[in-house]
Design a binder for these strands. Structure first.
Length: 492
RNA sequence: CGGGGUGUAGCGUAGCCCGGUUAUCGCGCCACGUUUGGGACGUGGAGGCCGCAGGUUCGAAUCCUGCCACCCCGACCA
């Protein structure tokens, strides 16, 4: 492990890449654009999964699993969806390899083994799922269908970055079917709320809920709800989306049902997802120049104990004390690891646990044995204090809650300070270049203005906030009348 | 896919222009000893088809050709 991380001020993107690798979260693999998620990174992802899965089930959803492959004829059925993803699809054309007669010891694709119909590796699963739902739905009594799947998908991206954009990524995708438009809309909004609640309460990442403009909308959706977060470098990151799909997929896959008036109608749909990209959001929201900073809710170990000793006798005394602390913490539902490795000295352990973002560190040495104390260090503030043993477990449990809240508030302050109201295009460009962050500005509602602004500034409309107040104004670019402000930013 | 760049040990590198014995240095790794309240020190050691293939040459990490991979900047994107 090399000593120092590149600082954020020096090169934010280099800092991010180094942090992901050095904190042992993930690394690049032999497959272009695909990452290996290492045990420590995967443990954090599992924490996210567990909480999201709980929330999905609490809102009435069940898990299921659909195939990795989508026959091309199904994939192309919903035209807009197909068109939107066509440029980044991996395609299976053959099903067999054979020894290469011209190249000893090598394999080649058997030209005789061409598939009748190509299979698309799913970039998203609407097609295969809606084709399946057709067989499940005849009557309004079969509705709603509320299903989620945990899966991997492939989008053949040109340029990839660990967690933020990989060719293969892990995610969950919910796909629901409803009898009425109103019910589907409620579902799409509900799941966006679930995502917002998860991001804020669990990941300590403040988000803005909104809807996408037409050009940023999911291919095939009527409305795309989203949660947008702001990273420390002032760039926005779309952290989750929930789509109201209208009857587009029902029509494309001919999914009709008889309603309670005996009339035939197409089914209404939603889909919603978050991915391993949330790992990127987590890193870029809280971490610092010493490494990862994990909110207690997401830390694989919330507390780590580092022993400091000169001989076996001291180590035994420390171990006894540590085991007592671990037991008390476990009773309160706090996870704690005892780092008793003899192969590393305390300083190296301190540095490693800081790099990996363990929220609280306890150091116990001979002095602490003597005084009935421990040294308690906070990862988020990098402060440490000597604490008496009495009531330690409760002190720690409370402190973890404080840390969780403070991380959220810190991120919220940063975010709120980086929403700038702007009314003219010159200021727009200046704020984007110098201050960065979200810009709240009037927009005339046309794709043309949106496109022009993107070309000129690289900023896109991240969302039209849901809680927007209506306000008369003129478009920051065209000067045409506008009824509300929207949020612009450069985005990941 | 366009424009630029880089490939030397696990990682970071020197050497390349101007070909010449055993390919440089640091980190990391291994062994032993001394250490342990913020990334220890000493001694010894292991590790290389110099991206791949071909060519020029008495001789190639170095020169030439082709290929591959990766990085940066664009276009695309959760």
């Amino acid at each position: 492990m090399s000593k120092n991380l590149t600082s954020r001020a020096e090169d934010y993107s280099k800092w991010y890449n180094e942090l992901v690798v050095k904190a042992d979260l993930a690394e690049n693999s032999a497959v272009r654009g695909c990452m290996v998620i290492k045990p420590y990174g995967y443990a954090i992802w599992e924490k996210m999964q567990a909480e999201l899965d709980r929330m999905f089930k609490e809102t009435g959803h069940q898990n299921a699993y659909f195939p990795l492959f989508v026959p091309k004829s199904l994939f192309e059925a919903e035209e807009k969806n197909a068109e939107g993803f066509a440029k980044e699809c991996a395609v299976v054309t053959h099903y067999r390899l054979q020894n290469d007669p011209d190249n000893e010891g090598k394999l080649r694709v058997d030209p005789e083994a061409k598939l009748e119909e190509e299979l698309i590796v799913r970039p998203t699963s609407e097609a295969i799922i809606w084709n399946t739902y057709r067989g499940w739905i005849q009557s309004y009594r079969d509705l709603p269908i509320l299903i989620n799947q945990w899966a991997n998908v492939v989008r053949w991206e040109m340029r990839t970055r660990l967690f933020l954009r990989t060719a293969e990524f892990l995610w969950q995708e919910g796909h629901t079917a409803h009898a009425t438009k109103a019910e589907a809309l409620v579902e799409a909004e509900q799941m966006n709320n679930v995502y917002a609640e998860f991001a804020e309460n669990f990941m300590a990442i403040p988000v803005i809920q909104g809807v996408k403009t037409e050009s940023e909308r999911f291919a095939g959706a009527v409305e795309t709800y989203c949660i947008e977060a702001l990273m420390q470098d002032g760039k926005a990151l779309q952290a989750g989306t929930s789509h109201f799909l209208g009857q587009n997929f029902a029509k494309a896959f001919d999914v009709k049902f008889t309603n309670n008036e005996g009339k035939l109608d197409y089914v209404w749909a939603t889909s919603w997802g978050v991915s391993t990209r949330l790992m990127g959001a987590l890193i870029m929201t809280h971490s610092d120049d010493k490494g990862l900073v994990l909110p207690p809710n997401l830390a694989p170990s919330q507390v780590v104990i580092v022993p400091i000793y000169k001989n076996d006798e001291q180590f035994d005394a420390i171990t006894e004390k540590a085991e007592g602390i671990i037991k008390d913490l476990k009773d309160l539902g706090v996870s704690c690891k005892f780092d008793k490795r003899t192969t590393h000295r305390p300083g190296a352990k301190f540095a490693q646990h800081e790099l990996q973002g363990v929220p609280l560190r306890i150091a116990i040495g001979p002095k602490d044995i003597e005084n009935n104390t421990i040294e308690l260090a906070r990862r988020d503030t990098l402060t440490k204090e000597i604490v008496q043993m009495g009531g330690l477990a409760h002190t720690i449990k409370d402190l973890l809650e404080v840390i969780q809240d403070e991380l959220y508030n810190k991120a919220l302050n940063y975010r709120d300070e980086h929403i700038t109201k702007v009314d003219d295009f010159e200021t727009f460009k200046k704020v984007l270049e110098n201050k960065t962050g979200f810009i709240s500005a009037h927009w005339d509602g046309t794709s043309e203005s949106e496109q022009k602004i993107k070309e000129l500034t690289k900023a896109t409309i991240r969302c039209i906030p849901l809680d927007n107040e209506l306000e008369e104004g003129v478009c920051v670019y065209s000067g045409e009348p506008s009824t509300q402000r929207v949020l612009f930013a450069k985005a990941y």
